Simulated scan of single mutants.
Amino acid sequence: MASTVLTPADLVILAVLAEGARHGYDLNAELERRDVSDWVSVSRPQVYYSLRKLADRGLLAPVVSEGSGGPERQAYAVTETGRSELALALGREDWATARPHQPFVTWLAMAAHTDEASRKRVIEARLAFVEGTIERERHTLETFAAQPGPMVQEASLMIELTIGQLEYERGWLQRVRALLIPKKAK
């Protein structure tokens, strides 16, 4: 079984289920609680698709639970094969070397082709987004760090990095604004 066919969403689901068996509804709630959408795209339908895919590959096994109410209430646990595949996939070097595409940077590469008002609007919107996200992440760090459970240390490190990157971007955006928006347009 080649781990390369496992998507980031599949791996997130395997990682959460490695902590303990869950059904799809509970898994979705846990992903929302952890703000997983901040760092990976996992939709509600994707959870159920991945559960089926991972179970079909033998990486998950159904767990008998009382009151099972259909497929969205079928609990799954990670198999030994699933744990091995997860460890193998998480050992790949591309986790450290891939560069994600950032929509604002793509926009900036083409910004010379728009008018001053549009440039101002987009730059100000990005600044407002960054400011709001910094505040939200600071709040998340405060509340999350006080919670018990697995991966709290790793999550806190992720949030600290995110805050640092956003604070740097805020300063950089102020420079972008100063260079790309003439004083009369401010």
Score class of each variant (00 low, 15 high):
G91A: 07
K53W: 02
G82M: 03
T79S: 07
G70M: 14
Y76G: 05
L59F: 10
S37H: 13
D94W: 15
L88T: 07
L86N: 09
Y48H: 10
V47P: 03
L86I: 04
A89Q: 05
L31F: 08
S65N: 01
S84R: 13
P45C: 01
K53I: 01
L59T: 00
A77V: 06
L59S: 01
Y49M: 04
A89S: 12
P71T: 11
G82A: 04
E72C: 05
T79V: 00
G70K: 10
L90R: 14
V47A: 09
D35C: 15
S41G: 05
A109Q: 14
A98L: 05
V63M: 01
A96N: 15
P71N: 09
A109D: 14
A98N: 02
T97H: 10
Q46W: 01
E32H: 13
R99Y: 08
V78K: 02
Q74D: 02
R33N: 12
L108G: 11
K53F: 10
T79R: 03
V40I: 14
A61F: 02
L54R: 08
L54S: 03
W39I: 12
L31I: 04
S65C: 02
H101G: 08
S50R: 06
P100L: 13
G24E: 00
H113D: 06
A61H: 07
A89P: 11
A109E: 14
V42R: 06
E85W: 06
R44P: 04
W95R: 10
D38S: 13
Y25Q: 05
V42A: 14
G67F: 02
V64A: 14
L27S: 01
G82L: 07
W107S: 09
P103R: 01
G91V: 07
V105K: 10
S84Q: 12
L108K: 12
P62K: 00
A112I: 11
E93P: 14
A98C: 03
L60Q: 00
Q46P: 00
N28L: 05
G58C: 14
D26N: 08
R83H: 09
G82D: 03
V47E: 01
R52N: 09
T81F: 03
S65L: 00
F104D: 00
P45R: 09
G69D: 02
R57Q: 14
D94S: 15
R52Y: 02
R99E: 12
M110K: 12
A61N: 06
Y25C: 00
A55L: 04
Q74N: 02
E30H: 14
F104I: 06
R52Q: 02
L86Y: 01
A111S: 15
E66F: 05
T97R: 12
W107K: 07
D35T: 13
E80W: 03
E72W: 01
V78H: 05
D38W: 13
V78D: 08
Y76A: 00
W107D: 04
S68R: 08
V40Y: 07
T106K: 11
E80R: 11
L27T: 01
V105D: 11
V105C: 09
L31C: 11
H113P: 01
P45I: 03
P103V: 04
L60K: 02
L86K: 01
L54F: 09
E85Q: 15
S37K: 09
M110P: 00
